[in-house]
Design a protein around this nucleic acid. Structure first.
Lengths: 143, 143
DNA sequence: CATGCACCTTCCCATCATGGTAAGGTCAAT
DNA sequence: ATTGACCTTACCATGATGGGAAGGTGCATG
């Protein structure tokens, strides 16, 4: 299977497939006599795995670990779970940061008249003339 | 004031100050006879503005707009507010994505025994053997 | 005065995931 | 034989940031 078909089948662009090969995330693809890369179902399967991991926000080093664990018949699910929980912690941290930005901005926006006059608490806060509001800490969502 | 002092005073690294100058976000700094950049209080003020805008997650183009509006005596607060609300929408979208990742992963992690055996729903989902769980849509936080 | 240290300058490279483009090779169908 | 779709490698770009090299400036201390 050519790289274009592999891309369509796996949902990973040809660009990224070559990139993953270049950085050693996937083994170098077989080549046909034309020098075209040749993919089989296992390759597609692996690319799909990578895409799903990316969709969950895993970083390249984490995906490397996940791929290794996937291939290890004697893995412990504890190691996978630990990796996942670490990533959840990371996601929570990022969500917390974004939410703080959002809430601060929301407070400022509500305090802004939004009319034709120049007076604006948003600009004034950015200018340091008045301190940025500190939103209440939202409690993290639990599932 | 030298760039190092300006960096400490504004909370923007020397690297970034030069970068902002290079991309035209701030005017080219005055130079002393030594060719060292020279900053005054207005410059520090502007750098502080940029840092606070960055802390709220605004992108470079948005900060460019904010700086322009800051300097416009005849701005309308409506324009500022519109920019802020657009950014809030962006933040909400990013938060939503991250939360979906987080919740999916949380479901998977809870379903994983985390013991010494290899069986693991996290790996199986990534491998496409079972579908990824679809978490309930969390309602957006309101302030 | 000389040396050293802290600071500055420009320039290049790296990240991370991704895309664009250019110049050229392959292959199947017309 | 030509065309068009596909492939190859190689380089450049993003956005915000940092690292480092090679070399200049300026001040304090011996």
């Amino acid at each position: 299977m050519q790289i274009g078909q592999a891309a369509r089948a796996s949902g990973v662009s040809t660009k990224m497939i070559r990139h993953y090969e270049a950085i050693g995330l996937i083994p170098a693809a077989d080549r046909r006599s034309s020098n075209y890369r040749d993919y089989d179902h296992d390759d597609i399967h692996r690319l799909g795995f990578i895409r799903r991991a990316r969709d969950l926000g895993f970083s390249m080093p984490e995906i490397r670990d996940l791929l290794r664990l996937w291939g290890e018949g004697n893995r412990s699910s504890a190691e996978v779970k630990q990796l996942a929980e670490k990533h959840i912690t990371d996601l929570d941290a990022r969500i917390g940061l974004l939410r703080e930005m959002r809430d601060t901005l929301s407070i400022l926006s509500h305090a802004c008249d939004g009319d034709s006059r120049p007076h604006c608490p948003i600009i004034e806060s950015l200018a340091g003339e008045v301190p940025l509001p500190r939103p209440q800490l939202a409690e993290p969502a639990t599932v």
